[in-house]
Design a protein around this nucleic acid. Structure first.
Ligand SMILES: [Mn+2]
Ligand SMILES: [Mn+2]
Ligand SMILES: [Mn+2]
Ligand SMILES: [Mn+2]
Lengths: 273, 273
DNA sequence: TCCGTAAGTTAGGCAATCCTAACTTTTGCG
DNA sequence: CGCAAAAGTTAGGATTGCCTAACTTACGGA
């Protein structure tokens, strides 16, 4: 049984995950920092330094010591390939196999490294060439192009605004389930009825009901920016805002944990796409 | 990005492949040899010795030095779990995604280590709980039970015998394509019209046509043994015959290759199931 | 300008896998 | 029975990836 069976020229699963993470942390024009990357991947910063050297040697990223990394064209191509596989798989699991939208991510996180492009293409064809994953994230085309429009979050919208939910962040399964209960899913029309001041609750009209959500939650729900809206939160990864509000690097949750012995227990995932 | 996301208590992909290989080499009551295992996995015998020690320490196999290995109950359970995942995935790819039967194996060989049991169960349900994979290999049930009937090969049948194709070996994509052209696939009724002596060609009546096949090819096509047939080739792996004809251990093809430098290039696969 | 802190690196380790070379045990044959 | 080939093991390496501890650099104030 078996013997290798590599998927492509084949980067390792680890490398693919690094490239994906860097892609998402670069956001609109920045570089990805070591610590940030470590948090996103659930590993120690020192480990990232080591991998960064190797990725740079392989020409997948460029690295300025102490200054962060950026994808090269080759690295970006690879990242978008993995992202395409991930999102098509998520869409397929939801569409063809009845997976709930809060459980597609973890499964895709593993399958993205094992599925061939042929399989992914067959999946995409089987469900009608979807343009987004179940959370509304755009699926890169086979040629590596992807819709990279910046999005605004519900938290950025003034009262009275009408919009259509474009995308929700898929980090947290529990949050996804809650959003699902509220009827907040991609494609749904929404109206901002009211906003309490000082970061208070936001009143929405959604799915023919009025709902109150906190501004924290609202930041994880994205819409196409109506004219004149300045956004503080962008699809992809980081804030589009200059300085304020960017304390928690990216959106990394419980970081690497701090066990003493017994390696091999990295935290659970926390991503987007 | 991500962070771990293990599939189960999670054996490594390597360990799962070893256990599968051992399961198949054990055949009906034997032990699996180091060299045999190395050939099946496409790695060097010395590497197998090392892994064997670790698997024995973990209680997945029992090992008698210089005498070969056997699965423990825990090891057999794990092996059957992987085999179930592999075969369900093969069946799903063929049934739901239109994969040709000569290309499902390699894809399944990778996905089997990444797909969760939930995914595999959903796949099985989606295609009506298949009992065999596209090559006729039985799919272990969720509880780990599997039909382990010995099968006879076409080469074992005397002229005049009627049988129904049960299974074909899926080692070689080219052979699968050829068998497909001949109409030799699981479920097809076949009649042995004639056999030339001294290992000469066998004349079959299949798919309403008469076909000639060599005895080598015939050995890779399996049927439920009609009464009175002694078989020389069994499903699973090795011959049921005492000594004769067991030169090429198992059915390993091009073994480990013999590159000098540059590891990381193991040969392509060669298996069953 | 100076400095402390945060971020990033290096050093030293470990575990999983695989390899080649060299040595040991088994075993089939004459 | 005796031995040489075959099968199996050990020894010594390499690679990938991750970890902790300790050191270095960058940078935002005071
Ligand atoms: Mn992943
Ligand atoms: Mn997603
Ligand atoms: Mn495999
Ligand atoms: Mn197979």
């Amino acid at each position: 049984m078996s013997a290798a069976v590599p998927r492509r020229a084949a980067l390792t699963a680890s490398v693919e995950d690094y490239l994906k993470a860097i892609y998402e942390l670069e956001g609109y024009g920045g570089a990805a920092g070591t610590k940030e990357l470590a948090a996103a991947l659930g590993i120690a910063p020192a480990s990232v330094s080591g991998m960064v050297r190797r990725l740079a040697e392989q020409g997948l990223i460029s690295h300025q010591r102490y200054r962060g990394v950026r994808l090269t064209d080759a690295g970006r191509r690879a990242a978008l390939g993995t992202i395409r596989r991930h999102r098509v798989i998520e869409a397929y699991l939801a569409e063809a196999l009845g997976y709930p939208w809060d459980r597609v991510h973890d499964e895709a996180e593993r399958l993205e490294h094992a599925a061939s492009d042929e399989l992914v293409d067959r999946m995409a064809a089987a469900i009608g060439e979807p343009e987004t994953d179940p959370h509304g994230a755009p699926i890169p085309a086979r040629d590596g192009t992807m819709d990279e429009r910046r999005l605004a979050s519900l938290d950025d919208l003034p009262p009275g605004t009408q919009a259509r939910i474009q995308r929700v962040e898929d980090d947290d399964p529990a949050r996804l389930r809650y959003l699902g209960e509220l009827g907040i899913k991609p494609g749904a029309p929404v109206r901002i009825v009211d906003r309490a001041p000082y970061g208070g609750p936001i009143t929405l009209r959604i799915a023919r009901a009025e709902r109150l959500i906190g501004s924290e939650l609202a930041r994880h729900v994205l819409v196409i920016p109506p004219p004149g809206v300045t956004f503080s939160h962008a699809a992809g990864a980081r804030s589009a805002v200059p300085a304020a509000g960017r304390d928690a690097a990216g959106s990394a949750r419980h970081a690497a944990g701090g066990g003493k012995r017994g390696r091999r227990r990295r935290g659970s995932a926390h991503d987007r796409d």
